[in-house]
Design a binder for these strands. Sequence first.
DNA 1: TTTTTCATTTCAATAATCAGAAATATAAAA
DNA 2: TTTTATATTTCTGATTATTGAAATGAAAAA
Lengths: 256, 256
Amino acid sequence: MAIQSVNRALDILFLFTNTKPRLGITDISNLLGLTKPTVHGLVQTLTSRGFLYQDPESRKYSLGLKIHEIGTILCSTLKINQVGAGPARRLADATNYMIRIAIWDRDEILVTFNVFPGSQTINYQQLGPRVPAYCSASGKALLSMMPSKKIEQYVKQTPLKPYTPKTITTVKQLKNELEKARINGYAEDREEYLPGLFCISAPIFNQNGSPYAAISVSGGFQFFSNEELDTISQQMKEAAAEISRSLGYFHQATPI
Amino acid sequence: MAIQSVNRALDILFLFTNTKPRLGITDISNLLGLTKPTVHGLVQTLTSRGFLYQDPESRKYSLGLKIHEIGTILCSTLKINQVGAGPARRLADATNYMIRIAIWDRDEILVTFNVFPGSQTINYQQLGPRVPAYCSASGKALLSMMPSKKIEQYVKQTPLKPYTPKTITTVKQLKNELEKARINGYAEDREEYLPGLFCISAPIFNQNGSPYAAISVSGGFQFFSNEELDTISQQMKEAAAEISRSLGYFHQATPI
DNA sequence: TTTTTCATTTCAATAATCAGAAATATAAAA
DNA sequence: TTTTATATTTCTGATTATTGAAATGAAAAA
């Protein structure tokens, strides 16, 4: 049983966009095909709770800051952040690079946690950004561990749009990358999404043994020597394994 | 007219916390004093929209990732971000430090935009973190431009809790800082919230001439020489003025 | 000033939701 | 296996929300 008024209230929230950030009652009424008294009641409720904000001058509405509050709570309730914060912090200090944790969400990579090296900087325990899986190290790390059926499905329905000259745009290239990731235990992103940004990422598994999240090390490409890559990837894989264990994952012992 | 079911749906969302990240129907029913069928309908609606997530195994509910999506939209619809992105990016590249834009929200500082120097790093056009006003450069920059009545009200109802050994904990010290900020045109934060973090921040005014937001430059304290401080604070004040003008603020000409 | 626009409120009929109690379903625990 | 706990569904009268048309209020435009 879906609650009509709740659905409509959520519909109203998603009417606001980059290009239409401010809406009036009549706008909303027209967009949703609802009467003005109905819209007014819903909008007033959302406004009284801080999910909408009414500009006193124009009387137009925009999204309210209470949305940020619930977003912060979402972030702190994510299990991966709760168990990943410690290992990520230690990895940041050990490597002196930015560390991120990300999860797979609707075929994209959603960053859930950011740590910068040195205790003098803030832990961004906050969500975002969202990045296509095929051109991020974490995306490839996760994809490489998914069943081949899922990979086929992914490449079939995902246009490999180039973001930089180095973005992978063919299925063959992508599959090669995934194979390499399976061998190395980590995936790479060599300026495939942002120029100058080089990342490596290792998958994190949950108690079902499914690839659930990924931890990544980001740095300027010029700073990663081959030797450094060996050291850092090793530390990163250990951090990933530690988090996987915290999530209840036990690596299968090799059968005799 | 407040819509009961919408209010209840929002109540449900705020039941989830750091310490209680997963709740069942009975839990929610008890916490809100509602019957189970009522709660179930609301929860199902929120789940179908992605605002809640039900774990298939435990059947418990937690906050859903759709909350992040609406948070992203909130961020991109904020006028201050829309007009501040350009100047902030240029300031980051000019100074080679992290730049942030923040607004005053319920006596706290809410960061709405982060830019890191160099095009190789990502613009965090995302909300958070939230920091007490009295121990952040942006908070002091904004507070310094508020009417003295508002300042009195602020210090009266805000406990000056220490975060570091250098946090300002007396009203007198804070007022001295505000006076200094008014003279300099920017405020400072010398490791008052996080050890090793030094920031300066200049206020941004809206078309009413009210202090509305602040732009800050963050860096390790050891990297700020006096000379550098002069240059950077000047560039920062110019960026702040540019954003203020974009918001419709015209600086009063000095009367003859 | 008058006109226009749109937010807000009113009202009564209609539709949707809720409470309360109880039944059924489902999964974990004993 | 049975027991236990809890999610989910069912039902009906009571409560609450929505519609549609119209009126009022309040600010901006002409």
